[in-house]
Nucleic acid binder design. Structure first.
Length: 155
DNA sequence: GCCAACGTTGGC
DNA sequence: GCCAACGTTGGC
């Protein structure tokens, strides 16, 4: 099963917010590479939920895909910050998925700690300058992150 | 098709 | 809040 990592700014929507709401549409992705990964996701896929632009950036918990990619309607809403006037309704440009909270990490697994894991040496997350907000995670990376957080594997 | 200018991301 | 790095846009 593929694994993923989703970035979110905790000041806007953090892992505790996901736990509070239960399920959340993952909309507003407006980057083609990230969108293409969203489109590869299947219901049941597990994700690391990452806090970016935080005082302590890192993984805050595990989430699960509860709905595969479908049209992100915000692209057609002129009042939305995610409105895209160039998107053709007969062939929508942007997709979203839906996620739910699975388990919070006991403490945020910091980017610094992730960089120390050999499994994560080659990842868009740890690559300098990379801003990709949706990215694939190998089973080894996923397992190493959980182990470093002190959690057993999740199925 | 090039590339400068721009807006955005995200660690620090 | 700063600013390096990036993706996108649009003039040419």
């Amino acid at each position: 099963m593929p694994h993923w990592l989703l970035k979110s700014e905790p000041d806007v929507f953090g892992y505790p917010d996901l736990e509070r709401v239960g399920r959340e549409p993952w909309n507003g992705v407006r980057n083609y590479q990230a969108r293409n990964f969203l489109r590869q996701m299947a219901e049941g896929d597990l994700c690391l939920f990452y806090h970016s632009r935080s005082k302590t950036p890192g993984v805050a918990g595990v989430a699960r895909i509860t709905r595969a990619a479908h049209t992100d309607d915000l692209q057609f809403d002129p009042a939305s910050a995610y409105f895209d006037p160039k998107s053709d309704p007969s062939q929508p440009r942007w997709s979203m998925v839906e996620v739910e909270a699975v388990r919070a990490f006991p403490a945020v697994l910091t980017l610094e700690a992730i960089r120390a894991l050999p499994e994560w040496a080659d990842s868009p997350l740890t690559r300098k300058g990379s801003r990709l907000s949706v990215l694939p995670v190998t089973p080894e990376q996923f397992g190493a992150a959980l182990a470093a957080a002190g959690l057993a594997l999740i199925n």
